[in-house]
Design a protein around this nucleic acid. Structure first.
Length: 433
DNA sequence: TCTGGGGTCCTAGGACCC
DNA sequence: TCTGGGGTCCTAGGACCC
């Protein structure tokens, strides 16, 4: 963090418009004017859509099967989600932003905060320059919001997206208090970062329906009614900095791998494959962060949408010593599964969560030998991760994950050639088509 | 037939201890 | 046996985020 003692803090939020759809369009420039949706795993729900789609009455998180027919009739093109592709574009996006300030926080796959405190520039013009550069270098369209706190920058970004007169860049810091208040009076309170549907309903009952009302609410009263988180939000709306730019993501406290099945699963062997897969997947992601797990949690469940009564057992077990070894974690997970499994259930989802994670540094070898094979295991895991990094995820894995994997998800509309694209040469962060 | 997959933080309440 | 307060730890649940 830079020192902010002599300047009023300034944050910007750069956010890619319809990230997943924009990535798909990058591969298919011919779809520039075609409405696109991207579907969740299993092609279940709509999780991203281009602007035109809202006008068609298709909503976010709507099950695809409910709207597919109508959408196709309207010429909508659908894609299965392709996270490797999106992660690749996300990295290019963040790298481009680093040209403008070293103080960049990657907040999510399609959003970065920038600290612009103390910059002697016309902030709005700078925002436009950022927007244009990202478009040129990555083909991704973005909006930029600028404010004295992260919460305000978020809100400014929303305004930049929604109100066309701003043309994609909205700078609250250059607006007068009166101007801002007039703007805030016209924005629904649930557009504020940290105010979801529930809070919005409760706030509405107290007569707080727009952002201006929330900004003017008494922090103490908000704290008593809603807790410290929303109190902080109110203060941030008033320009008080409570959230700072984060250096890097804090280490995870838990790592979860879970997924719905492509079709219902009933047999133990199929569940064993799925749990093995999730154990291996979670362990690999945990190793990437150089963490060890102290506990393993496994769950299986049927579908809330099926007629059957809900069945969703879950169990957690503490490990005798922290480990990052896929083999040990898988063993434990399979043991838990065996204890929970009941025949005659149509399982819809299963998952593994690794918990109580601790840094890999300084792990003690326990007295009873559980961890005594650590050097061997470490070499094996390093090899495993190396192969999978080089040749793609899942190239090397435990046999218990199965070969056919009949339980895996559907991705019937995946964009082709994504690996070739991911390997595209980069010159000075610039994308070379 | 088909209904996402990750995470975090806070709070309240119970168990237990002194 | 009854009474009370303070502290910690754990868990479940609810809210939020993308």
């Amino acid at each position: 963090m830079r020192s902010t003692t002599s300047f009023k803090p300034v944050f910007a939020l750069a956010d890619v418009n319809s990230m997943y759809c924009s990535c798909e369009r990058a591969l298919r420039p011919d779809l520039r004017d075609t409405p696109i949706v991207v579907l969740s795993n299993n092609d279940g729900c709509v999780i991203a859509q281009t602007r035109e789609i809202e006008a068609l009455g298709i909503e976010m998180a709507q099950p695809w099967f409910e709207v597919e027919e109508q959408a196709r009739a309207l010429g909508v093109v659908a894609f299965s989600s392709n996270y490797e592709l999106y992660a690749n574009f996300s990295n290019r996006f963040a790298e481009t932003l680093r040209q403008f300030t070293p103080f960049v926080e990657v907040y999510s796959i399609d959003e970065c905060f920038l600290d612009l405190t103390g910059m002697r520039v016309d902030l709005e013009a700078y925002g436009r320059q950022i927007k244009e550069t990202v478009l040129q270098w990555t083909t991704l369209p973005i909006c930029v919001g600028i404010g004295h706190t992260k919460t305000l920058a978020k809100l400014a970004n929303k305004v930049a997206k929604k109100q066309e007169r701003f043309e994609g860049v909205c700078d609250f810091t250059s607006m007068s208090e009166t101007e801002l208040d007039r703007l805030f009076a016209g924005i629904a309170v649930d557009k504020v970062w940290g105010v979801g549907r529930r809070y919005a309903e409760r706030l509405a009952r107290l007569g707080v329906e727009n952002v201006l009302r929330l900004k003017r609410a008494s922090p103490k009263r908000v704290r008593d009614e809603f807790g410290v988180v929303l109190e902080r939000t109110v203060k941030e709306l008033n320009g008080e900095v409570w959230l700072d730019l984060q250096d890097g993501p804090p280490p995870s406290k838990q790592v979860m791998s879970s997924r719905s099945f492509g079709a219902r699963v009933t047999t133990l062997p199929a569940l064993q494959e799925a749990i093995s897969f999730h154990a291996g997947n979670a362990a690999a992601r945990m190793r990437k962060q150089q963490l060890y797990a102290n506990a393993v949690h496994v769950f299986i469940q049927n579908s809330p949408f099926d007629q059957a009564p809900p069945f969703g057992p879950s169990m957690t077990v503490a490990l005798p010593a922290p480990t990052d070894c896929t083999i040990k974690i898988t063993e434990v997970a399979l043991w838990l599964l065996k204890r929970m499994y009941k025949a005659g259930i149509y399982y819809q989802k299963a998952g593994v969560m690794l918990m109580e994670l601790v840094p890999a540094e300084g792990q003690q070898v326990d007295l009873f030998g559980y961890a005594s094979s650590i050097p061997k295991s470490k070499a094996l895991m390093t090899t495993l991760d190396g192969i999978n990094k080089k040749y793609g995820r899942g190239t090397a894995r435990l046999a218990s994950e199965g070969i056919k994997q009949s339980w895996t998800m559907r991705r019937e509309m995946m964009s082709p050639n994504y690996t070739a694209w991911a390997g595209m040469p980069v010159v000075g962060s610039k994308l070379v088509p």
